[in-house]
C-alpha cells in the first residue's frame, strides 16, 4: 500500500510482482507514458518536478482513501520525476483485489486523484524549441486541468 516518487526508470515487472497476493483474483494496472504530442504541438521530451514531501503525503492520503472506498487487497503507485523521453513510463499504478470490478474502479480513481491533487508539475519541451509548464499558462485559453 504505497505511493512513491522515483528519480529512476520504473520497472513494471517488478512493480507488478509486488502486488502478488493469494487472496487476489484480479489485477489492474495503469501505465502513463510520455507521448509525442499535446494539444496539437509536437513534444520532444518533458521534465517532472515534485514538492516531494507533500507529494508523498498527499499520495498516501489518496491510497488510504481508495482502500477505504474499494475492497482491494494491494495498491502500489509510483510517479517519476526528472527528465523523461517519449515512450518513457511516467506513472505506474497497480491494484489487486478479489474481484475485477473493485480493481478497475480503484485504479481509475487513483490516477484521477493523483493527477488532480499531487504536487507534481510537468514541463513540456516542444520541437520548435519552446517550453511550457502544463496548466500554468496565464494568457490564452491553454490553462485548466
Amino acid at each position: 500500500m504505497s505511493f512513491h516518487l522515483s528519480t529512476q526508470p520504473l520497472d513494471p515487472v517488478a512493480l507488478k510482482a509486488s502486488l502478488a497476493d493469494a487472496h487476489a483474483g484480479a489485477c489492474v494496472t495503469f501505465e502513463g507514458w510520455v507521448r509525442d504530442h499535446n494539444e496539437g504541438r509536437p513534444v520532444q521530451s518533458l521534465d517532472y518536478e515534485a514538492y516531494a514531501p507533500l507529494a508523498e503525503k498527499e499520495g498516501a492520503r489518496i491510497v488510504a482513501e481508495t482502500l477505504a472506498r474499494f475492497p482491494v487487497t494491494r495498491v502500489v503507485c509510483v510517479h517519476r520525476t526528472g527528465a523523461l523521453r517519449i515512450g518513457d513510463l511516467a506513472v505506474w499504478i497497480g491494484v489487486a483485489s478479489a474481484h475485477r470490478a473493485a480493481a478497475f474502479d480503484a485504479c481509475r480513481t487513483l490516477i484521477d486523484e493523483i493527477k488532480a491533487r499531487v504536487p507534481v508539475w510537468k514541463k513540456e519541451h516542444y520541437a520548435d524549441g519552446t517550453t511550457e509548464w502544463i496548466n500554468c499558462a496565464t494568457r490564452g485559453d491553454h490553462a485548466g486541468p
Partner: peptide, 25 residues
C-alpha cells in the same frame, strides 16, 4: 509541509510553498 488555508496566520520560521496548478500523470 502540508496544505493550508490562505488565511492561516504566518508564524516566525514557517516554511511556505506556493503550489502552481499540478500536472502529474
Amino acid at each position: 509541509g502540508d496544505f493550508a488555508p490562505w488565511p492561516a496566520p504566518l508564524k516566525d520560521n514557517d516554511e511556505i510553498v506556493f503550489i502552481p496548478p499540478v500536472a502529474g500523470g
